[in-house]
Design a protein around this nucleic acid. Structure first.
Lengths: 345, 345
DNA sequence: CTGCCGGATGGTATCGATAACAATTGACGG
DNA sequence: CCGTCAATTGTTATCGATACCATCCGGCAG
């Protein structure tokens, strides 16, 4: 930077001001500086800038996996918003493990992000401590924890499945099963299953039929395996809710393979409104939470919180409840009950 | 850090050494320091460390989109390897645009990454200059450019499609079409199409039938729309190669919807070996380049290059050609030609 | 004509860690 | 009992930019 300053005949301080558009620099000076920058091929060093200004321009985002389009959509939404303020997203993946999450949080904090967005509301005690003491805004997403660390932009996973199940019941389905991963790791999946159990009871359905397959993340393949076990175990089941659209898709494809008509023999619903669900044949009934938009909202809240933090007045914890929508499609389009008269989307 | 040093009764330098396991610190001293760190809840500041050591521990990775599992798999592979050396990946997305790429590169360089991995071998002139002058290892992936900037870990997109087309021909297909996005943006898609054209000519097929739909990225939906246009335009076509598995999937689902049997009425192949292709009904013939492994190899090369760079002896440009595999599945399983006798996987 | 004011620019200290080198310590052989 | 060496720890300068305050300048009111 000193080189640039010399060449432009100004001080380093003025170069710094010119480069970030802040402060006041006379147009001719500005031009001379930019020209010098150009000629020397100089590139600003933000690490150094971060050190002195204490503003790293980073926001950390932790997600279970990049390979799940729900989460990568959320990241995209966050990035979109943060880009407008020249903030950069530092992505970390936790592999659906709380221990990994703790480790990743620790690594991330060494980079001094100005805020951190995590997926889910369940964390190891140490992770909670780390986040709480970091002195930066924290946003938990994709969940609605009872005792948030700081801000929340999420929804109740249980509630989404309760609504979905109610909708299926309204359509006339009575024997409704649930396909999920084995417990312990994927807390959001666990919550959805809890919602299923609760709804089965509340709605007075006959009994709950749950098939657990594999360790999270539950894949397309798991869905296929699970639906076979389901039909063998409880042939009378009329519909099944899968913990995610991917498993629902796998289940449907396996049904095709075996000649089980969907939805006639078995109706299938998922969660997450993945792109594949909209265009699958048959299209898949699902719950949409607007992953991308969820990300945007989290991003906006984060910007606000960071601004507040810079001003010295931390933002009081916010709690944004993202609405979800049950999207009924062809995979649950058989009306088994006379009360069902709606047109299916 | 000074606080920690005081509490542990040592100098800051010793704390620094203790925290990074480098140098030599007596076990009791080490313990005292770690205890002090614990008690004070101190977290190392790597930005500051980066400034003085000139090692940021960052590697930038630029991909067109997070939403494409090929690319997110590659990132995952890269991360896996870099994690072992405590290097962090800074992801940037370019939205399939070279202009965006140029802008992202510029932003990234301000963070002083120790290496940068980009997708594709086509860049704006300025982007090339920036990368070339950055003084760090550069790896181009997912392509095999004639004039690489530095290292390459990739393959020829054209060659993959040539092989795929040859395989379809061997299976007896003669009238083979291609579905792609509109040109100009997705250079890899463009290369694949070029491979198609070349193969059609080389193999003496009747003529090339190309349907172009939408701006990249080509989605599932585009595939569905394109296949309809294809069948309307050239009813005699027997097989179609889609620029990616997603569009192939969309095409197949649309065929189901319209009662066009796959592969009997129309065989469909894709590119990329997405998870969806393996479990789709019918399973989709595709070309696999092992995205995750490609990432791992790029990661390993990057580590080597960074080590070499730190030693002061830049690594001579390497050129890793990643082998691809045509995976034949049910979506092209009709044998139209007596010569075809192989078992389909 | 004088003095004040605000916009533009420069000088200096500093952010938090680490590199490089200096100093200290203890062990061991002669 | 002393000198030497290696292991351990401390001291100082520095990385590159920016915050903060000082300075300079021209314009304008009185």
């Amino acid at each position: 930077m000193a080189d640039v300053a010399r060449r432009a005949g100004v001080s380093a301080m003025t170069v710094s001001r010119a480069l970030k558009g802040k402060g006041t620099v006379t147009p001719p000076t500005q031009d001379r500086i930019l020209k010098a920058v150009q000629e020397l091929g100089y590139v600003l060093d933000k690490s150094a800038g971060a050190l002195s200004s204490k503003q790293t321009g980073f926001v950390s985002v932790l997600i279970p996996s990049l390979n799940n389009s729900n989460f990568s959509d959320t990241v995209q939404g966050i990035s979109e918003v943060l880009d407008t303020e020249a903030m950069q997203v530092l992505i970390g993946t936790t592999g659906y493990s709380r221990e990994r999450e703790e480790a990743v949080i620790e690594t991330m904090l060494q980079r001094r992000p100005e805020g951190i967005i995590v997926t889910g509301g369940k964390h190891t005690p140490r992770a909670r401590t780390l986040l709480g003491q970091a002195g930066i805004p924290v946003i938990e997403t994709w969940d609605m924890p009872a005792a948030p660390i700081d801000h929340v932009v999420g929804f109740s996973n249980a509630a989404t499945i309760e609504d979905l199940l109610a909708r299926l019941m309204f359509r006339g389905y009575r024997r409704i099963a649930f396909i999920e991963g084995e417990h312990g790791e994927d807390t959001r999946g666990h919550d959805r299953r809890a919602g299923y159990e609760r709804a089965v009871e509340a709605l007075g359905l006959e009994r709950s039929c749950v098939i657990s397959v594999g360790r999270p993340p539950i894949t397309i393949e798991h869905g296929g395996g699970a639906v076979v076990r389901l039909v063998e175990t409880w042939p009378e089941v009329e519909a099944v809710i899968c913990v995610s659209d991917l498993s629902a898709f796998g289940a449907i494809m396996e049904c095709h393979r075996r000649g089980w008509a969907v939805p006639e023999r078995l109706a299938v619903a998922g969660f997450g409104d993945f792109e594949v669900s909209r265009f699958c044949w048959p299209s898949i009934t699902t719950v949409s939470v607007g992953s991308r938009d969820l990300g945007r909202q989290a991003g906006r809240l984060m910007l606000e919180a960071i601004t507040a933090m810079r001003t010295g007045t931390p933002l009081a914890p916010r709690r944004l409840n993202i609405p979800h929508t049950v999207i009924e499609r062809d995979s649950t389009a058989v009306h088994r009950h006379p009360a069902a008269t709606h047109q299916v989307a």
